[in-house]
Each structure stands twice: as C-alpha cells, then as structure tokens.
Simulated scan of single mutants.
Amino acid sequence: MTASKKNAPRAKAPEPNLRHVWLAGLGVVAIARRRGTARLTTAKQDIERIAQRAQATLRDVRAQGEAGVERFSADVEARLAPVLEKLGLGAGRPAPKGRRKPAAAKQARSAPRKRAGVARKAAGRKRA
C-alpha cells in the first residue's frame, strides 16, 4: 500500500436522521416477521404431528378397552348362566317385566278433559 492511500481522507458517514431510523425499523420488522412465520410454520407442524400421535394412541386404547369389555361381558355371562338356569331364568325365557297399567287408563290420561264451566257457557250461547 502506498502512503497516499493510507492518508487519504475517508468519506464521512452521513448523520443518522429520521429516515434512516424509519428504514432500519422496517428492516427489523421484515426480518422478525420472516423468522416468526418460519417458527409458526414449524410449531404448527409439530402440533399436527403431536395431535396425530394422540389420536392414534386413543384409537389403540379404545380398541383395547372394547376388547376388554367384550371379554369381561362374556366371562360374566358364562359364570351367571348356570345360576340363571337353576332359577329358571335361562336364555330361552324372557326376563320378567314390571307392572303394566291397563291400556284404558293410558287412553283416559291422554284424552283431553273438558271442564264443566266451559260446557255450560257453550250451552248458554246456543239457547240465546
């Protein structure tokens, strides 16, 4: 290097003004937005992956639970079958039903009731 280049005066950097601050702020916002969008995208993918794993686990647990219930139900029925046979409540005979109300009582309840006062008023209007 020559001596003239070393001693050459440098160009002065312009003084920062409001425009420079505004442009720097825009640059920061653009970079933050780009990074934030990338992070949100990866977070969304992670959440979707976790949700899919959870759904698969729940399906497996549900299938195992249903199989366990079926085995338990079959075991209970097998153990109770001899007892029910001795009591005369075997598989061929229907289970006893509760007390039933007669059909006439059902119809009487569902039929609309007329009040005596209404009938008298209607009869009085016809006469007049």
Rank of each mutant, 00 (worst) to 15 (best):
F72L: 14
G27V: 09
R35F: 03
R39N: 04
P112Y: 02
A116V: 07
R113V: 14
K106L: 15
A108G: 01
A103E: 12
R53Y: 04
V61L: 12
Q107D: 08
I47C: 11
A103D: 15
A122E: 06
L40K: 06
R125C: 07
V28N: 02
R71Q: 09
P82F: 01
R19K: 13
E70R: 14
A74W: 10
L23R: 02
A116H: 04
E15L: 09
A43T: 01
V118D: 06
V61M: 10
R49Q: 05
R33V: 13
V61A: 12
V29G: 11
A8L: 05
V28P: 01
T2H: 07
R10P: 04
Q45R: 08
T42V: 03
R113F: 11
R49E: 03
R39L: 03
P102N: 12
E70A: 15
R127L: 04
K101N: 07
G90I: 14
D46C: 05
Q45V: 08
R99K: 14
P96N: 04
G117H: 05
G88E: 00
A128V: 05
L23T: 02
Q52P: 06
V61H: 12
A13C: 07
T42F: 00
V61E: 11
A43I: 00
K44N: 07
R53A: 06
R39T: 03
